[in-house]
């Protein structure tokens, strides 16, 4: 109960701070939009080939855009040494991770919802033909990136090369999530039966649960001293 209460307090605080500063959402949106437009001009958006690779392009732009947002996530906690203030609280430190994960997940999903129509138009796709499946793949893929991104954002927050450290830690480990998300999105975009994506979606869900539990358990040692 204490964990849930503390996680929600952190989530609400991040939401309020983001509403004021808009630094995470602006970074994700601007970068995502630039990548989407660049890809659209680099490839012929009407060709079948472009549609075949659109899933990969979509997730790559989401991933790189998210990096900018994730970099800001714990930067907010390092100003005025607020992370130390959180360590004084009579709550499990894992609840800080869960609260930050929730807010990162929300910011990333919100930005993706804005970027999806951009991809839909530029690549001439039918992204919203099966909205339920699209929502599930987006949620699971973004959760995977956010679960790892949140803990590595905390790790890199106190290092001198924060901007470099986060991608160095995050990118190699997100490869399984990225592959599963790209494969299932490609199946969705090509109009194939979704049972072909079943394995990839289960894999995504599995990675999400494992990464979240591991990060939650390890967060305590990440923020010590």
């Amino acid at each position: 109960m204490d964990t849930l209460r503390a996680s929600l307090a952190i989530f609400r605080k991040d939401l309020l701070a983001e509403r004021r500063t808009k630094d995470v959402s602006t970074a994700i949106l601007l970068f995502g939009f630039t990548v989407a437009v660049s890809f659209a001009f680099a490839f012929d958006p009407t060709s079948d080939e472009a549609r075949r690779i659109a899933g990969g392009l979509l997730w790559l732009s989401f991933l790189f855009a998210s990096l900018l947002g994730l970099n800001r996530s714990f930067a907010r906690e390092t100003a005025n040494d607020c992370l130390q203030g959180l360590r004084l609280m009579p709550v499990d430190l894992g609840s800080i991770y869960l609260g930050k994960l929730l807010s990162n997940l929300l910011f990333m999903l919100a930005a993706e919802l804005v970027l999806l129509p951009v991809f839909n138009i530029f690549f001439n796709l039918n992204l919203f033909e099966r909205p339920g499946w699209l929502a599930l793949i987006l949620l699971l893929g973004t959760w995977g990136v956010a679960s790892l991104g949140t803990i590595f954002s905390a790790v890199s927050a106190n290092t001198r090369m924060r901007e470099l450290m986060l991608p160095m830690l995050l990118l190699p480990l997100t490869i399984p999530v990225l592959i599963a998300a790209i494969e299932s999105t490609t199946i969705l975009l090509r109009g194939l039966p979704m049972r072909e994506a079943e394995l990839w979606i289960k894999l995504l869900a599995g990675f999400d649960v494992i990464f979240t539990v591991l990060a939650w358990l390890l967060f305590d040692s990440v923020v010590q001293e």
């Binding site: 609400r12 701070a17 005025n80 607020c82 130390q84 609280m89």
Partner: peptide, 24 residues
């Protein structure tokens, strides 16, 4: 401590409310 542990983008009231929620 030497640092205030305060969030610059929150008001005085909101900072205290945030910590009050964590303290339950």
């Amino acid at each position: 401590g030497h640092e205030t542990f305060l969030y610059d983008e929150l008001t005085v009231q909101e900072n205290l409310l945030f910590y009050a929620r964590l303290y339950g």
